[in-house]
Design a protein around this nucleic acid. Sequence first.
DNA 1: TATTGACTTAGAGCGCGCTCTAAATTGTAG
DNA 2: CTACAATTTAGAGCGCGCTCTAAGTCAATA
Lengths: 129, 129
Amino acid sequence: MNTTSELLTIQQVSEITGLSVHTLRYYERIGLIYPIDRAQNTHRRYSSDDLGWIDFLLKLRATGMSIQDMQRYAELQCEGEHTLPERLEMMKAHRLKVEGQMRELQEHLDLICSKIGFYEEEIAAKNLN
Amino acid sequence: MNTTSELLTIQQVSEITGLSVHTLRYYERIGLIYPIDRAQNTHRRYSSDDLGWIDFLLKLRATGMSIQDMQRYAELQCEGEHTLPERLEMMKAHRLKVEGQMRELQEHLDLICSKIGFYEEEIAAKNLN
DNA sequence: TATTGACTTAGAGCGCGCTCTAAATTGTAG
DNA sequence: CTACAATTTAGAGCGCGCTCTAAGTCAATA
């Protein structure tokens, strides 16, 4: 319940998120993460809000959003509430993209599965195994 | 039904597959595509077998297989029938990977969808739209 | 006081997967 | 025969997303 104790060093955030400290600083430099508060004016101290944002970024990244698009999204977030509609549109567009990806993945997966079946038959027929 | 007429130039294969002529030559150079037959000893002439292989490569690529792994697979294919078991193992491992990818994608997609719902509510509440 | 170690910045470097260039050769149409 | 388009090779270059380096600051410990 102590606010101060909830603040994390870059090391700790690195361990929690799986991002390297280099990458954390890189993301901040390029505007993916807005400037983190500092202790004694130098060392970064991450809040749980910062962690939440990073977590969301990672989900966008994992679904194939480019850094450029994430930058745009972060920019809108900073600009405030009047950008909500545009952010909504971005998310909707991204949802469509991810759904398309998944359909494509499923199709190709089906082919791979049939290839596996074919291999198994062939191996059985030739007693290779 | 004429065998000769089925052979395609690199241009034609580029148009059919969507790969640039540069990429087609690049894939051949690095061993992803085994040496294509030549007309008059210089210009490439692609057979329908070649096309089939390229098509399969593209499906592996679309499901996130690295060039390195595809190279290994192509190598095994060239070595002949005794590599069938190893190729089968590669495909099975790849299937697992793709299935994992899809599960992860689905999870993140769910989050994006809930974010969309949240945005819509917020926008409605504030009459931003 | 000296050392250790976590942190800072700006900027260079890297692996991947292409993508393009240069210079030469070949094929085709007028 | 001439001109132009398509092809060839070897190798350089590029965009993305990190990843690492160098040089320096600062805090805590021996």
